[in-house]
């Protein structure tokens, strides 16, 4: 949720050619793009440069700025740490790099991992910033994700703010009685809070279920009308992985 209040952390409400593409179409395009990126041999650097250009063009169409995208790359940090470790833990012939002795294979693998992860995360950010969370759930539903998982996601979306609000009120109530977590012993208090929050959420779940039954719920959420997706939308979205594939095939032909 972040501190953004009512706003979304990533989604930006605008009207660009990317926003109007149905979410499941975009999702297919993003996943295909990522597949192409991951399938590229790690040392084909011109291909990766080509992918970055494609993403820049798409990002520009979505009117995203570098200042918007870069801070959101933090989700990649675990991969970055792993990529940085690779040259030191991998075996094989050692080379000198910045005055350190590192594994050549590890260094190459680390660089490849970093490039692939970064490109994939940028593609995801472009997707997330042009697709509302609600639309993502709908997209997954249209891609035939099992109903039960769509329902769980949809409820999570609805109640994350409600549960977050409860958590905040509990914290304020704690702090109003002069509590601040200063040492490990205080974990017990936080544990009680977490337990209370769980019970409350569980009870709310039961009440919500009751309210659903009262309005004729029988196990499936009613599926709303599905509009036919215009072929132009598919073409528009799939142009992105198609361009990436062209770059990949091009590099292959030249190598």
């Amino acid at each position: 949720m972040g501190g953004a209040g009512h706003g979304h952390a990533v989604y930006r409400e605008r009207l660009t050619p990317l926003h109007v593409v149905p979410s499941h179409v975009k999702l297919v395009a993003v996943v295909s793009f990522v597949f192409v990126v991951v399938a590229t041999p790690g040392t084909w650097y011109p291909a990766f440069a080509g992918y970055l250009v494609i993403l820049c063009v798409v990002g520009a169409i979505a009117r995203l700025t570098i200042g918007f995208v870069v801070p959101r790359l933090v989700v990649e940090i675990p991969f970055v740490i792993f990529a940085l470790l690779l040259p030191f833990v991998a075996k094989g012939s050692q080379i000198e790099f910045l005055g350190m002795s590192v594994s050549e294979a590890g260094l190459l693998a680390g660089v490849a991992l970093l490039m692939k992860a970064t490109l994939s995360v940028i593609a995801s950010i472009v997707f997330a910033s042009t697709t509302s969370p609600r639309e993502m759930c709908r997209g997954l539903e249209r891609l035939r994700l099992p109903q039960i998982m769509v329902q769980i996601l949809t409820f999570m979306l609805r109640y994350v703010d409600v549960v977050g609000g409860e958590l905040r009120r509990m914290r304020i109530a704690r702090e109003s009685r002069a509590f601040t977590a200063r040492h490990l012993g205080h974990l017990k208090v936080l544990g009680h809070s977490a337990g209370a929050l769980f019970i409350r959420s569980y009870e709310r779940g039961e009440r919500v279920h009751l309210a659903m039954l009262s309005r004729g719920y029988t196990g499936t959420l009613p599926v709303m009308e599905q509009e036919r997706v215009a072929t132009s939308m598919w073409l528009r979205a799939l142009a992105v992985p198609a361009a990436a594939l062209a770059v990949l095939l091009g590099s292959w032909a030249f190598s």
Binding site: F155, A211, R215, G216, P222
Partner: peptide, 19 residues
């Protein structure tokens, strides 16, 4: 908050009649 469980007001009001 127990009664309104769908992501938008419209979907929630439609829930009963859709069922």
């Amino acid at each position: 908050d127990d009664q309104l469980f769908m992501p938008t007001v419209r979907e929630d009001v439609a829930f009963g009649p859709a069922n």
